[in-house]
Every structure is written in structure tokens, then in C-alpha cells.
Design a binder for these strands. Structure first.
Lengths: 109, 109
DNA sequence: TGAGATACCTTGACAGGCGAGGTATCTCGT
DNA sequence: ACGAGATACCTCGCCTGTCAAGGTATCTCA
């Protein structure tokens, strides 16, 4: 079973922010965490992930720095900004509302 | 408070099918029911609604007939097909899965 | 040496939502 | 009689997020 990202459209940013709430991280790791947390049912495509990073950084919700690993592939590390924390909090509230709404609209009355 | 339709993207079809599960209906009425059920928090835009009807009919999940009202504006009535009923059932299952997934990905661990 | 993992990136196509515009009928107050 | 507002339908074209497909570079291990 694998869930379509189209049904999660608009939540990508929030999912990423939620990961960054645990602390600084980087793309590849975040992606594996999401896959693991979903039990393999869902995975963010790379293009979607990196597009989202650009969007989030442009919006001022995250900021990035290049890692200084002396070996291995280079990593770009991301951190949430205070604005990002606000955004995450707000988005979680919106999710709860959306969830209740869809329950009402889709489930038996 | 008003919820963005972007967060509901992909659920429009299911919301409409769910309305038609109650029996034959028409666009304007369905739209008002959705608004009412959401307590005014959400409303399907007309362009979205009629686009969805086309999509659903092309997919064979609903079928339509023009009403024979002898007064008032003309109405186009829609009914679910057996395929539509299957689709609705499946979509409701997908919603439950998506809901659990987002709970896991967005809420505190 | 080469496969596979790690790690990043961009481009262009596609699909759904919707703003803006349109049509036509009926009711009700002035 | 006339205009506003409700009822009821429709289409065109823009915008935005997803993602397939392509790319780069490093490291490990057989």
C-alpha cells in the first residue's frame, strides 16, 4: 500500500518543518525519517523535497548552511527560524481543523 | 476561519461522491450542503465543483440528466454509478490511512 | 573496477483549484 | 416596471505543488 502524494499536497512543507523541530538536519536524512515514520507507506520524492526546501527558505521559515564534513558527500543542513516555528504551530492547528472537516464531509452522518 | 482548498486538493471528488451517496442531487444544492456541513468554514468554488462533475462523469463514477422543472432555473441532476460507489468506498479507506499518516508525521511523537 | 549507497540539484510536464467572466430564470420590494 | 439578489448553470486561463527524468560528486565494499 502506498499513498499518493497528491492527497498530501500542501502538507509537504509542514511535514518537513515538523522534522526540523527535532533539530538541525539535512535533506537525505529527513527523507529517510519520513519514509520510516510512514512505515514505508509514503515517501517524499526528491524533486518535491528539494523544491520544498527552496520554498521554505525563500519564505524565511528555514535557513541553511553547508556542512563541513571532511569526508563523504557534502550535506546542506537546515534549521527552523522562529517564523518557521510559528508557521509549524499554525499549520498543525490547520491540520486538526482540516481533519475534522474531512471527517464530517466524508464519513457517515 | 476558512480552510484553504489547497489542503483539500484531491478530496473534492470524494466529497461530491459522498453527497451523492445520499441520492440524486444537483450542483447548487450539493454546494450549499457542503458549506452547511462545514459550518461555513469551507466552500467549494463553483469552478472547482463543475470541473469536478466533468471529471467524475468522464471517469464513469457519476451520470447526469437535465431536470424537467417547469419553472425556475434549469438543473442538471447527478447520480452515482456502481463504479462510483466502489470509488467512494475506496477513497474513504484512503482518507483514513492518510489521516493516520499525517497524524504520525505532524503530531508530537 | 563497478555497483550501490550517500547526498545534492534542476527542468519541464501535468493536474487540480479557482478568479473572472459569462448565461438565464425567478422573486420581491419599491 | 425595474433592479437587486437568489437560483442555477458554464468555460477559459492562470497558478502552484508534485514528480519523472535527468544530472553531479563522494565513499564503501566486493
Amino acid at each position: 500500500m502506498s499513498l499518493s502524494s497528491d492527497l498530501l499536497r500542501g502538507y509537504t512543507d509542514t511535514i518537513i518543518l515538523r522534522r526540523l523541530a527535532e533539530g538541525e538536519s539535512y535533506g537525505y536524512r529527513i527523507n529517510r525519517e519520513i519514509t520510516a515514520l510512514s512505515g514505508g507507506a509514503f515517501e517524499l520524492k526528491e524533486a518535491t523535497l528539494y523544491t520544498a526546501f527552496r520554498r521554505l527558505e525563500n519564505a524565511g521559515w528555514i535557513c541553511s548552511r553547508w556542512g563541513d564534513e571532511e569526508s563523504g558527500a557534502r550535506r546542506r543542513y537546515y534549521r527552523m527560524t522562529p517564523e518557521g516555528e510559528e508557521k509549524l504551530k499554525k499549520d498543525c492547528g490547520t491540520w486538526r481543523e482540516t481533519r475534522e472537516l474531512l471527517n464530517r464531509l466524508l464519513m457517515e452522518e
